[in-house]
Each structure stands twice: as structure tokens, then as C-alpha cells.
Design a protein around this nucleic acid. Structure first.
Lengths: 152, 152
DNA sequence: TCCAGTGTGTCAGAATCCTGACATGAGTCA
DNA sequence: TGACTCATGTCAGGATTCTGACACACTGGA
């Protein structure tokens, strides 16, 4: 078998993907009864914490392209969960904001997602969680540096 | 702002998604010059470590549906990287195996991906990595238990 | 023996997301 | 002022993935 390759059982990268997939599946399970998708929820949650974000900024925060966020925002606006000015006040960016209805929908979804996260962290004490946060931030930072150094 | 919602800066779930997205982007960057996609690579790596896996098993290991893995396997077989018997020896499962050419392709890709993982873990010592592995395994386990208890 | 349950391969259609491209507005610098 | 770069919104097309469905094969219990 020529011991090269990456051992899946001890690969941080594989575990990372596995955990992310499991989290996404669990979120889909609790969001489906609410008629929401994960990207749906991510967009609303971002807007709640940082009102006035533009479509491109929301896309970066939700890890999708701005084209995908564009169609999502159109749907959210059509359904009355989000409002955007008809014309940009400055530049081209259209700052989006939650409507009262959007906030209501988000509150239900947010509670469900928080439940998922709590259950995900069961079995880990506060020190473990703090350490996990530091490790994840370190990984993100290292990957970003590496990517930037390849000028792209 | 009514302090509900999930603080994105301190949410393990958000960081998890961010790290996973960054890892995937970095892998795409190094695999693109080799003419491979991440799912492509995942399938080959899985087969190298566990020869004879069926399409459904590969799908679970690569976190896609078995329908998606089905079309991927057709392409890999057409390109001569993977072989499968024309008829199942037992049951319906068709055990897949890497060809010599597939193994060659994988070796190059595997080295590139290992480089990404090494750079991702830069700044973390052995103890940190071991701790991160335990945390990730704990999260996966908790999420799976929760999902199983809802019988689906 | 029969039969329900589970796992697998496969086909067809739909939904989702991305790549490519274009035009516009703002900032920078010579 | 004008050229250049960068970020944004938007449209069109294509690629990828998923959902739904069907048929078949093994297993275990009634």
C-alpha cells in the first residue's frame, strides 16, 4: 500500500470536513421544518448582527459567490424578510436590512440552530471550546496567508 | 440589538464552516493545476486507503449522495483511473479499485494536499493538533447521536 | 416459506451554485 | 483632468449536486 497518502482517521483536514458536513446536515434537519435553508439562515443571521451589509459582503460572510447571494436576496426581498433601497445612496452597494417579519423568522431559526450548536459542544468543557476556537482561528489564518501569498 | 442570535466571532459552528471553506478553497487552488476537483481527489484517496469500496460507501466517505458519486465514478472509469467489475460478485455492490494510472495521478494530488494540510497546521504544536482532533471527533459524535435519536 | 427491511445501482428531472461577462461608481495617482 | 484599479450589482449560460423514483439482492424474523 506504500504508506503515502493521508490517513483519514488522523487527518485534521478530513475531520474538519466531516464535522462541517455533520453540522450542516444537523442544521438542515432543524431548519427544514421552518421552511429555511442553511444559506437562507446564514444571510439573515449576518444581517441581524451587521445591519446594512451589501450583497457582496453578505456573500463573503456566507461563503457563496455574490451571484448566488444576489438571487437569494431577491427571494428574501420578495418574501418580505429583507429590504433594500431602490437606489444606492453612495457607490453601487445596496445596504440590506431585516424587516420585522424577517427578524421574527430569524428568531425561531436562530433558537433552533443554537440548540444544534449546544448539542454539538456537549462533552466539551469551556476550556476545550476555547481551545477549539483558537485552533480553528489559527487554521483559517494560516490558510488565508498561504492563499494571499500566491496572489489570488 | 436584543442579544440573541449567535455571535459569529465566538461561534464554534461558524468558525468550523469558515475553516472548512478555507480548506476547500486552498485544496481547489492546488488541485486545479492537476486537472482535479476536490470530490475527484477525495474519491481516489478513499480508494487508495480502502480498495474495493462500493459506490455507496465512497459517497458516504466523500460526503456526497450516491447519485453524485455514480456519475463521478463513470467519469473516473472512462478516464482509466478506476476499474470496476462488469457484474457484481455478490449482491449489487460493485467494488472499485485504482488503476496504475489512477494511483499515479493520486500520488501527485496527495502530495499537494498534504502540503496544504501542513501549512494549515503551521502555528500549532503536536499537542494542539491532538487536542483539535479530539474536539472534532467529539463534535462529530455528538451530532451523529443527536441525528440518530431523531431516527433519520 | 414468505415477507418486510435495508442496502445498492441507476435513471430522470429539478434545484442550486458557479464561471464568465458587462456596466457602473468610487478612489488613486500622475 | 484622465487613465487605472478595485468593488459592486446584474444577466446569461453551464456545470454540479440533489431529490425522487424504480428495480434488484441480501438478511432476519414471523
Amino acid at each position: 500500500m506504500s504508506q503515502d497518502g493521508i490517513d483519514l482517521e488522523t487527518s485534521v483536514g478530513y475531520l474538519l470536513k466531516e464535522a462541517s458536513a455533520a453540522l450542516r446536515a444537523a442544521m438542515e434537519d432543524v431548519l427544514r421544518p421552518l421552511g429555511m435553508t442553511v444559506t437562507h439562515y446564514s444571510c439573515l443571521e449576518l444581517l441581524a448582527q451587521r445591519p446594512g451589509l451589501s450583497g457582496a459582503e453578505l456573500a463573503r460572510g456566507a461563503f457563496v459567490t455574490r451571484q448566488s447571494m444576489h438571487v437569494l436576496l431577491q427571494a428574501l426581498e420578495r418574501d418580505g424578510f429583507v429590504t433594500r433601497p431602490a437606489e444606492p445612496a453612495v457607490g453601487k452597494a445596496l445596504p440590506a436590512r431585516l424587516t420585522a417579519e424577517g427578524r421574527r423568522r430569524l428568531d425561531a431559526a436562530s433558537a433552533a440552530v443554537r440548540g444544534v450548536e449546544v448539542r454539538m459542544l456537549a462533552g466539551m468543557d469551556a476550556a476545550d471550546q476555547e481551545h477549539a476556537l483558537r485552533c480553528l482561528r489559527s487554521m483559517v489564518g494560516s490558510l488565508r496567508d498561504q492563499r494571499a501569498s500566491e496572489d489570488r
